[in-house]
């Protein structure tokens, strides 16, 4: 029991130290760049390089990179756009595809050694992405149905008249507040929780290695397992964000079902 008692002095650092990064260039201006911004720029550049480079000499029978790119496209186009938005909605695939890839790349920084920070764990990033989705589904809805989009949502057909007192405010809050907010918070909280969990296990391993080396096997093995789990979570959250965006766009295109 002795080694376990020694761990009682372990102190977790304040949460700010895990998420706040110092500005690298242009300090104290609105254009300040820190680790989060650098990772976002690098991800965007990586996606562009991979896609432009991979699709340069396209062949009838794909090999190597082109194979992976086509699989990604098929996954977004077949699994998300055609299934959820509608069979004639292929023109939303570029948006959904870039959204999916961008979030996927940002999430995967969480498990890349020596970087280990998902930019999506800062509220600004998922919030911006959610606001983008928000305006797109509202614009698509109003463009296709005009004011009927709003009235169709706020006064759903088949509901008894007196229940509109209850239904309309709920639908209004759901359409304009809950949707973008839950979209952003879902991504944020998942990546934040993963980052905190990985940091806690890594710190516990380092601390117990100094004070009670035998105990450190536990958090070390757990850390490896959780890293694998976080890869799954990163992929799943990118998928769910894109899927929900597709659901909202589909709802704006065909509000009846």
């Amino acid at each position: 029991m002795q080694p376990l008692f020694l761990l009682g002095a372990f102190k977790f650092p304040p949460i700010d130290e895990l998420f706040r990064w110092k500005d690298v260039v242009f300090e104290d201006t609105p254009f300040a760049i820190n680790k989060t911004a650098i990772l976002m720029l690098v991800s965007a550049a990586l996606i562009i390089i991979i896609f432009v480079g991979g699709s340069r000499r396209m062949k009838m029978v794909p090999t190597g990179t082109q194979n992976v790119l086509e699989m990604t496209y098929e996954f977004v186009d077949g699994g998300i756009t055609r299934d959820v938005v509608g069979h004639d909605a292929t023109r939303y695939t570029p948006f959904l595809g870039s959204l999916f890839l961008f979030i996927l790349f940002l999430n995967f920084w969480e498990v890349i050694p020596f970087i280990q920070f998902p930019p999506t764990a800062r509220f600004a990033v998922p919030f911006y992405l959610a606001v983008q989705t928000y305006f797109i589904y509202l614009i698509v809805g109003f463009k296709n149905h005009g004011m009927k989009y709003l009235t169709g949502h706020l006064f759903p057909a088949g509901v008894p008249k007196f229940l509109y007192v209850l239904v309309t405010p709920i639908e209004f809050v759901q359409l304009f507040l809950v949707r973008p907010f839950s979209l952003a918070v879902r991504l944020l909280a998942n990546m934040m929780a993963g980052h905190i969990l990985l940091t806690a296990l890594a710190l516990l391993t380092a601390y117990s290695l100094q004070n009670a080396p035998i105990v450190s096997i536990g958090p070390f093995l757990l850390n490896i397992g959780v890293t694998g789990f976080e890869i799954l979570v990163g992929f799943l959250q990118a998928y769910i964000f894109t899927l929900l965006t597709a659901v909202y766009i589909g709802d704006s295109l065909h509000p009846e079902h």
Binding site: S182, V185, R186, L188, I240, L243, L244
Partner: peptide
């Protein structure tokens, strides 16, 4: 499977609000 993920996403949101 797609519908299941949607259901999980909507249900899970409440727990994540609690986390925030």
């Amino acid at each position: 499977r797609t519908t299941m993920f949607l259901g999980i996403a909507f249900t899970e949101a409440l727990a994540l609000f609690g986390f925030v």
